[in-house]
Structure formats: C-alpha cells, structure tokens
Amino acid sequence: MRIRAAAKEGVTEVRVLMSHVMETGQRKDSSGAVIPAHFITELTAKHNDKVVLSAQFGASVSTNPYLAFKFNGGAKGDKVAVSWVDNKGDSRTDEVQIS
C-alpha cells in the first residue's frame, strides 16, 4: 500500500492507496459462475501508537481503495501505520514517517 502523511500547520493529512481486488460477490465470470466476494473489511490507522482512524469497508468501496483523512498534531519523523484485514483473513500493515 502507498501511504503519504504530511504535517502542516498542526494538522497531519494522510492519504492511503491500498492494493486490493475488492470483489463484490455480485459479479459472474464468463461461465456464469459467481465470483466470490473478496474485500477489505476493517482498517486501522495509527499515529505512533495511538489510533487516529478506524474504518469498516463493504464491497462498494472501489478496487484498490483510496482513503484520505486528517488528524491534529503529528510531527516530521513520527510514524503513521495503516493496517487492513479482508473477509478472507488476509491482512497487511505498512508504515511511513510523516514528512
């Protein structure tokens, strides 16, 4: 996943681009079989060790989900980590430093 976190005037803006199929479970393949749902269900973002956002996603979130949010505080060099879990139990965590 690509994460950008930038601090400006006391507010840190975080932008995240995840890599995930976000399959809805509504689509069929060329043989007419339903393609099973496969999507991110939960996401947590932390600034150092403090949770700054938690989210629940459904299958209506676009493929390769994008998320942007802002929190008060944050200084250059602080860590921002984003973790997600999907409906099949796969997970991923990535971390960046605030610029």
Partner: peptide, 17 residues
C-alpha cells in the same frame, strides 16, 4: 460502503472512492 470511526483529535473529514 464504509463507516469511519473518528476518535478525538481526528478531523471529521474523510475521502474515499
């Protein structure tokens, strides 16, 4: 589509697709 929990200190301002 999505639910975002906003803890104290996070701005109520989110964007997604």
């Amino acid at each position: 589509a999505a639910t975002f929990d906003i803890p104290a200190g996070t701005l109520p301002d989110v964007q997604t697709r």
